[in-house]
């Protein structure tokens, strides 16, 4: 709670509350980051599930994974500053908490997949295993739910 208050009182948080321009810009940047995540990881998930078969995973997976990781980094950075404007309100907002939980699950799911032999096999253009497909389906579901939860932050008490 003290940490949240300290964040609320930080100079940049106060500046964001006062400035007319920065908050909407930051907001747009956050949306852009989410677009990068979902666009990249969604395409990769669909490829793992069997779409776009003419394009090899050895070619597609590395850039799509990296773009998704960049999107996550940008979303975290912009999200931190958006959060700083009203830390206590967001920390008590159920939709916000659910979104953060889902994002953590989505990131964990991706990190776990990258450690599996199924992933190395897929990267070598071998057959995509059922477990890798299941994780791809889970990833699509989690990130969609995370976006829905995120949008819901403004609509719950």
């Amino acid at each position: 709670m003290e940490l949240l208050q300290a964040l609320h009182d930080a100079g940049f948080a106060a500046a964001l509350r006062r400035a007319n321009l920065f908050y909407p810009l930051l907001n747009a940047f956050h949306i852009l980051s989410i677009g990068i995540i979902v666009g990249a990881i969604g395409t990769l998930d669909l490829r793992l599930l069997g779409a776009f078969r003419t394009f090899s995973l050895s070619q597609l997976a590395p850039p799509l994974s990296r773009m998704a990781a960049i999107g996550v980094g940008l979303a975290l950075a912009s999200g931190f500053f958006l959060f700083s404007v009203q830390p206590k309100a967001y920390a008590a907002n159920q939709a916000f908490l659910m979104k953060v939980g889902l994002a953590v699950c989505g990131i964990a799911n991706a990190l776990i997949l990258h450690k599996t032999s199924a992933w190395r096999q897929a990267l070598a253009d071998g057959p995509v295993t059922v477990s890798a497909k299941a994780q791809a389906a889970l990833s699509l579901t989690i990130w969609t739910a995370a976006v829905i939860s995120g949008r819901w932050i403004a609509f719950v008490d």
Binding site: S131, A134, Q135, L138, T141, A145, W152, F155
Partner: peptide, 24 residues
């Protein structure tokens, strides 16, 4: 992670995401 585990997990996540709407 197996398909058997991920399906209920996915269903849970969706259901949870949809229930938030009640206090909208």
């Amino acid at each position: 992670m197996t398909a058997r585990f991920s399906r209920p997990a996915a269903a849970f996540v969706l259901a949870a995401a949809l229930t938030i709407g009640t206090a909208a």
